[in-house]
């Protein structure tokens, strides 16, 4: 990772100095271990703070949304495989122009799930460092070494597009993509259940939801100026934590991501209540693949499945 960050800093500094971009969107250390936060670097000072490690799971494409249309800055953005696919989404949805961006591609080796680490470690974590395929977790006078493969985010464990799809410069050689991955084992398990059981499953899954909308806010796809949850005439969904309201919110949030979701996992890792919200979006992802052979964000030249049609497609 140290090679990655050196290269990221080197490229970022050059881009800013030569005036190729006005801002770099990357990561800096957060206030707690394993909580890197987005960083908007405009000066060499800011560049010093940039970091790169296995805690960069936030999808940076989300921070491009407010740069569209009226803002003309040239933006440098650091992009893993999934971020790059969400950048492609933004471009084909006319949120931003390709030539407004300088994409610094990061061949990704997977991000860790801080919750898994917290639950294994069982005491307050003071420091987390990493070395090759190991994660070293420290507390006062206590240390544990974990295998990174065992604490990966679930979406990273089944990721088949670790390399960025679009980029202007890479920080390292492309990594080998994971092969023979069964991406939809969990969805198939749910599909096999009778409808009542599915209903019950989601009742349990959503029982803890507090409607904080962190899942929505973390997602680069959710950029509508007024979200349907805030529409009041008519009101599509109540504001309460009534189970039907919660369920309706999740149904529509996921459906709005149909054909667009890249399974970046940002929604799931943002949830303060640990709710596996990818259970919804993955079903749509699978169906888009099965019905239309579609994977979101892979190409700048193809229209997403709900924005196009074929004459001969049956019903």
């Amino acid at each position: 990772m140290i090679e990655y960050i050196n290269k990221i800093k080197e490229i970022s500094e050059r881009l800013l100095k030569e005036g190729i971009v006005d801002i770099i969107i990357g990561f800096r250390k957060g206030t707690m271990p394993m909580m890197n936060e987005p960083c908007f670097a405009k000066s060499p000072e800011d560049i010093k703070n940039l970091v790169w490690d296995s805690n960069c799971g936030i999808n940076l494409a989300n921070y491009l949304t407010n740069y569209s249309a009226d803002r003309k800055e040239k933006i440098g953005i650091i992009a893993k495989g999934c971020d790059s696919r969400n950048i492609v989404n933004h471009i084909i949805e006319n949120k931003i122009k390709r030539d407004q961006l300088f994409i610094i591609g990061v061949p990704c080796k997977g991000m860790v799930d801080r919750r898994k680490i917290v639950s294994i470690f069982e005491r307050e974590i003071k420091e987390v460092t990493e070395e090759k395929n190991k994660i070293i977790v420290k507390s006062d006078g206590f240390e544990k070494i974990l295998k990174k493969a065992e604490v990966l985010q679930e979406n990273c464990a089944i990721c088949i597009h670790r390399n960025p799809v679009v980029y202007d410069e890479l920080v390292a050689d492309l990594v080998e993509e994971q092969k023979d991955v069964d991406r939809y084992e969990d969805v198939r398990r749910i599909e096999a259940m009778p409808v009542e059981k599915k209903y019950k499953l989601f009742d349990d899954l959503l029982s803890a939801c507090i409607r904080c909308y962190a899942c929505r806010n973390a997602c680069p796809l959710c950029y509508c100026p007024t979200c349907f949850v805030d529409e009041s005439r008519p009101q599509w969904v109540g504001k309460s934590i009534n189970p039907v309201d919660i369920r309706t919110f999740h149904f529509l949030r996921a459906f709005h991501c149909a054909g667009r979701c890249t399974d970046c996992g940002a929604c799931e890792s943002a949830c303060p209540m640990d709710i596996k919200v990818r259970t919804f979006t993955k079903k749509l992802e699978k169906d888009c693949f099965e019905l239309y052979g579609w994977e979101a964000g892979m190409s700048l030249d193809e229209r997403p499945p709900l924005d196009t049609y074929k004459f001969d497609y049956p019903d």
Binding site: F202, R247, F255, A258, L284
Partner: peptide, 24 residues
């Protein structure tokens, strides 16, 4: 001209997703 072509795609996905979410 093409409204229903879009609609049938939306509906095909919707129906599958609704079943996933507990609507027969």
């Amino acid at each position: 001209i093409e409204g229903n072509y879009y609609a049938r795609r939306k509906f095909a996905l919707f129906k599958r997703f609704a079943e996933h979410m507990g609507i027969e």
